[in-house]
Design a protein around this nucleic acid. Structure first.
Lengths: 221, 221
DNA sequence: TCCGAAATTACGGAAAACCGTAACATAGTT
DNA sequence: AACTATGTTACGGTTTTCCGTAATTTCGGA
């Protein structure tokens, strides 16, 4: 079993749950952080001290508070860590169940496991840890299809970004120039119109106002 | 302190966290369920057996799985319970922090506390329990403003109505005819334009989309 | 009853959103 | 290299929204 594990998760109650699960698996040293930046520092320091962590269990979304963070999300943290410490195993433990996201984390960042927080989440997490110990990728059932089946009606990060800018009061033209300035593709006005049209159809919205209202109610933005 | 408390929450790790918090507060009997329907049945049964629960701590959103549920959300459960068992105290414990949701739960269903899941969530939950024990409404800081401050705005029922129709996807012209049909005055397209312009200025919104996004965040609609 | 302020309605031009079509680019296949 | 599928960009026309101005109506007070 792993002997040194770090848990990065902002909610203290979930931290407790994960902690007890790790204890049951016989992990000797368990450390916990509630901020991505802390996770990064702890992991780097442990390497310098020659007592590195073997496994990181991390959430994706962290509520922002007064502490400004270098890493704005679990994703950013994971990206950096996988670049700098490829031997560190990483399991994502998140409510996020959009297949697009899971797919990206695995193909782009090579995470070693993805477990959806749910009723049986802790149980799944235990399975994932055992699996990762044997260098085998583990996906919890909710997202196991992330590679097999193709879910065509999915919302990706670009869509979210687009909807957010829209809800922030930017016109489609302003969004276009904003995307151009930030090297986000596609950025043409035409593409933005097309995407919004796709989203309107997907959410059965009459117009852009309706669309924003719907996705806000769904909690997507 | 309460002696008999039910926790309704689908994630087992959060359940563990809440459980330990309740233990620390000295609650003797703690029961947990992961489905709304189970919560309802347990509460009703306890009343029939003359050993009722005094407090329910419930989440709002529950992941759906193979078990089909009569209550599709924590909200539905709470609504029903507050109708049938008004003496039961209810604290909502949820990640949901949109004010209109919180407002609705308090004004429409008279919940006794609302705590946002966050880094300090368990701590807030403890405070809430103590407060509710004294029959005092408790709102965690994230949502405390849901009632207190922001009431100096000059918006009337007509404005709310207008914004609601707008967020429902009706065009300004459709809203106009809708108002005419329902004898709501003013109803001309011109008046609707004028009102929306007033609201845009009042809320510093760039356009109608922005306006709807803002008032949704404020919980006005 | 008349007056004036405020609300409502009407109108026209400019800007933005909406919608269909088509050209162009890119990646993967044979 | 040619072909296909998909994604991106470009463009023109229609509708809706946005905004200023002005005419009309409503209503309380002198």
């Amino acid at each position: 079993m792993f002997t040194k594990v770090l848990v990065s998760e902002d909610m203290e109650d979930i931290n407790k749950g994960v902690h007890s699960a790790l204890c049951e698996l016989g992990v000797k040293e368990i450390q916990q952080v509630q901020y991505c930046d802390d996770a990064y520092l702890k992991i780097k320091k442990a390497i310098l001290d020659d007592v590195p962590f073997q496994l990181l269990i991390s959430d994706l979304s962290f509520k922002t508070d007064y502490r400004t963070q270098k890493f704005q999300s679990g994703e950013a943290l994971i990206k950096k860590l996988k670049e700098e410490c490829p031997s560190l195993k990483i399991i994502v433990y998140s409510v996020e169940d959009r297949l697009q996201k899971v797919r990206a984390l695995i193909t782009d960042y090579q995470v070693d496991g993805y477990v959806c927080k749910s009723r049986r989440g802790l149980n799944e997490l235990s399975k994932a840890i055992k699996s990762v110990l044997n260098h085998t990728l583990y996906l919890s059932p909710e997202v196991a299809q992330a590679f097999n089946a193709n879910n065509n009606l999915e919302i990706d990060d670009f869509d979210i970004q687009l909807l957010k800018q829209l809800s922030n009061g930017l016109s489609q033209e302003e969004i276009s120039t904003h995307f151009k300035n930030n090297n986000i593709s596609p950025s043409s006005l035409s593409s933005i119109e097309k995407r919004l049209n796709k989203l309107r159809i997907e959410f059965k919205a009459n117009n852009a106002i309706h669309l924003v209202a719907i996705v806000k109610d769904l909690g997507l933005i």
